[in-house]
Structures are given as structure tokens and as C-alpha cells.
């Protein structure tokens, strides 16, 4: 997005330059140049099939781009693996739960904390020896309101709790950039509020990118918004600008009325 629409001239924490991804003949990401400021609350919207998840997969290293480059914290990370980016501070949640069904929530979060602190390759001390890391994990689970089930099997948890754990596992790595791929997708109405609340309380040291279909949620959360259409960046700007933009209305016409709340 253009630097001048942003609040200040800060070096972006995450940036893409002319990013392209083709699958055979299909252009999934079309020449996207995008900047994310530290601490941003940014939403990525667009109609179905606009290439939002592909874009996230490119940012996190699940896919490699056909051309263009990705920069994080001043470094070119285009050819870094998913794991290298995770260590450097790019974390994500997945649209479809990617959890460890046979472990407990406590173990799941502890795994991420362990790797962050370099304790993951410890092969002789039993899990739980580092009390500080366990305490941190428990505190995080408590903060997200899932400490009551921390010793249950993840695979048997209710879906809403699993969605929260999905966020907890990503946050445990203390990332600088966190990409939330439809965090409330499929969650019953009664439990959505809890997830939104968790997202709203994430510390400002983390820059957030949210992919979401629910426009109420997007405009409640995001200060800045990018609109992806057919893999290309249609427009970006502040939430107000996007809400007023006739092109965005055009895109969403027939799919959903863009309504601004607050």
C-alpha cells in the first residue's frame, strides 16, 4: 500500500514487491506490492477466490512465489522456509485447523514456546522440567480462556476451543507479524465474541493481518484494509476510504452489501 496513506513514515515490518504466483495457467497472485507497518491492524478482504489464502501462504512460506520478492524486518525472506520465517517472527493461524489432535493444549503451546527458547532439542530432560516455560504456556492459555481444558486431548475439544488454541499456538512464538486466516470461520455465533475479544486484546507489538468475510468484523477490527480481486491488489487505504470506495462496492455488489459499523 502507498506509504502516504499510512500514519507515519516508519520502515515497514513486512513488504512484498511485485509478488506473483501462477499455478499452471492460473494467476493466483498478480503483481502485488504491499506494505505492513509495525503494530498494524490490517484486513485483507476480497470475494471468494480472490487469492487471499494464496497470498498468506506466500507470505509465510507455505508456497514459493513465481516472481517478486518478500521482505521482513529489512531482510529479503523470499526464499526462506516456513520454519525460518516462523523463527524470525512471522506466525500464522490456518483457515482449517492445523493442530496436534493427539496432544493436549498445554503440550501444543509448550512446543511453540520450547522452540522459541531453543529448548525443543533438549533430548534428556523430561517435558515440564523448565517450569518457567510451562508457566508461560499456562498463562497464555488462561489469557485466551482455554486453561480449563489444557490437559484434554485436542482432538476431542469443541470447535470453538480449537479455534482459540489455533491462535494460542501462533501467539506462543511471540511473533512480530501474525496472520489470522478467518479466525472465526465456522464458529457458532455464541462463541464468536470470545474469539474477537482475544484478537482485539493482542498486544500492539504484533502487526496483525486479518483475512475475513464478515464485514462487520473487518470494520470493527481493521484500521487499514487491502482489497484483493482476481489475485491483484484492487485498492488499499484506511477503513473509511475503503468503505467509501465505489470500486469496492462494485466488487461486492451482488455478493454482500458493504456496511460500516462505527
Amino acid at each position: 500500500m502507498n506509504a502516504d496513506v499510512m500514519t507515519a513514515e516508519v520502515a515497514p515490518i513486512l513488504e512484498t514487491r511485485s509478488l506473483c504466483k501462477r499455478f499452471g495457467g492460473l494467476v493466483a497472485t498478480d503483481n502485488v506490492s504491499f506494505k505492513l507497518q509495525p503494530g498494524a491492524r490490517h484486513a485483507l478482504i476480497g470475494p471468494n477466490g480472490a487469492g487471499k489464502t494464496t497470498f498468506i501462504n506466500l507470505l509465510t512460506g507455505v508456497l514459493t512465489p513465481t516472481s517478486g520478492s518478500i521482505h521482513f524486518d529489512g531482510q529479503d525472506i523470499t526464499n526462506w522456509t516456513l520454519r525460518q520465517r516462523a523463527i524470525a517472527g512471522v506466525a500464522r493461524t490456518f483457515q482449517i485447523n492445523q493442530l496436534f489432535p493427539d496432544l493436549t493444549p498445554l503440550q501444543s503451546v509448550l512446543l511453540a514456546v520450547n522452540e522459541r527458547e531453543g529448548a525443543g532439542r533438549d533430548w534428556f530432560r523430561p517435558v515440564g522440567t523448565r517450569k518457567d516455560l510451562v508457566d508461560e504456556s499456562v498463562a497464555l492459555l488462561a489469557d485466551l480462556g482455554i486453561d480449563d481444558v489444557m490437559d484434554e486431548r485436542v482432538g476431542s475439544l469443541p470447535y470453538g476451543k480449537q479455534r482459540l488454541l489455533e491462535i494460542a499456538v501462533a501467539v506462543a512464538a511471540k511473533p512480530k507479524v501474525l496472520l489470522l486466516d478467518e479466525p472465526a470461520a465456522g464458529v457458532p455465533e455464541s462463541e464468536r465474541e470470545q474469539i474477537l475479544d482475544v484478537v482485539a486484546r493482542l498486544p500492539t507489538s504484533v502487526a496483525l493481518i486479518l483475512i475475513e468475510h464478515d464485514m462487520h468484523l473487518v470494520f470493527r477490527f481493521a484500521k487499514t484494509i487491502s482489497v484483493l480481486v482476481n489475485g491483484g491488489l484492487l485498492v488499499d487505504g484506511t477503513a473509511d476510504e475503503i468503505a467509501r470506495d465505489p470500486r469496492v462496492k462494485q466488487v461486492y455488489l451482488g455478493e454482500e452489501e458493504v456496511v460500516v459499523h462505527g
Partner: peptide, 16 residues
Amino acid sequence: KAIKGNPLRSRAIGIP
């Protein structure tokens, strides 16, 4: 056990 359960997520949380 994490790698066995979900290699993709394991990479995403920094497990080599």
C-alpha cells in the same frame, strides 16, 4: 509427536 501429528503446523511453530 507433533511432527507425526501435523508436520505443516510443526514447521509453522518453528520446529526443525
